[in-house]
């Protein structure tokens, strides 16, 4: 791990709270790209605003692009189209990716652009102090739902699948090995890849809902047990299929437009 740290991280320690899942995801991601052995210059890590967006920026020693709240996927789309060779990974959260940035999420999935979106779902807006999010379970307590959340949460995997994503998975930070494997698959997959990672937030969400970090881990353990997880939140890879990728389509259009003139460019 010392070696990996030197190779891929700008500096440590990170500033995540005790019990936060961000460190585990950072760890898993570093291991995944180390095992993939792709050119590290080809990685571009884009993030928005929120706790999860601090995973790549400033810690990862790769090209990192810390953008605006909710807009990471839109920035990533521009960068990926302008330079198709980049391996673009978007780190986002539930508020960032599904709340303010929900529109960009579904449209990127619809285009099937070759991005890898790692969405950390901690059920709340952690950075601003634990407000109700589009993924907060019904009736749970947050700083802006003191009487219990009146809304119902998103099922993000179903949403993204319906929008047209070609790789969709959900894991918890309790399953690092499966998560690393899935990250590698998602990065190599040609098309829109989406991994929802359930992550604990004991500081903001757990505190108000009497969930200690131990309760979180037990809950994730229960979810990850195939026998004990009947009607609850399913985990695993839900979609893995081939479909025309957006950047390739754009390059075909270029050839079509240039072919008409009978000249070949590039």
């Amino acid at each position: 791990m010392q070696e990996l740290m030197k190779k891929y991280l700008r500096y440590l320690p990170h500033r995540f709270c005790a019990g936060c899942g961000n460190g585990i995801v950072l760890n898993c991601f570093v291991r995944a790209i180390d095992q993939l052995k792709l050119d590290t210059d080809s990685y571009l890590c884009v993030s928005g605003i929120g706790c999860s967006s601090w995973i790549p920026s400033p810690y990862l020693n790769l090209d990192t692009f810390h953008t605006l709240h909710g807009r990471a996927i839109a920035y990533a789309t521009g960068a990926k189209v302008a330079n198709n060779k980049l391996n673009v990974i978007v780190f986002t959260g539930d508020g960032d990716g599904a709340g303010i940035g929900g529109n960009h999420l579904i449209h990127a999935a619809r285009r099937n652009i070759d991005l890898t979106v790692l969405l950390l779902n901690n059920y709340t807006y952690g950075m601003t102090g634990g407000q109700v999010a589009p993924t907060t379970p019904h009736a749970s307590l947050t700083s802006t739902s003191p009487y219990g959340n009146p809304e119902r949460p998103f099922d993000l995997c179903k949403l993204v699948e319906a929008a047209g994503a070609t790789y969709v998975a959900r894991w918890t930070v309790f399953q690092p090995r499966a998560l690393i494997k899935s990250m590698k698959e998602a990065i190599l997959h040609k098309g829109f890849s989406f991994i929802e990672i359930l992550s604990p937030c004991p500081t903001e969400y757990g505190r108000r809902n009497q969930l200690s970090i131990r309760d979180y881990l037990n809950y994730f353990k229960e979810l990850s047990n195939p026998q004990g997880n009947g009607s609850k939140i399913p985990l695993g890879v839900f979609v893995k299929k081939e479909a025309p990728e957006f950047c390739m389509q754009l390059n075909l259009i270029k050839m079509k437009a240039q072919g008409k003139r009978g000249e070949k460019i590039d």
């Binding site: 692009f65 605006l68 839109a74 990926k80 189209v81």
Partner: peptide
């Protein structure tokens, strides 16, 4: 490349991303 984005927010975001690329 020509991109028709989902809104103007995404359009301006995409050109900033493209400029850095």
């Amino acid at each position: 490349y020509f991109l028709q984005m989902e809104d103007e927010i995404a359009s301006s975001a995409a050109i900033i991303g493209a400029s850095w690329a």
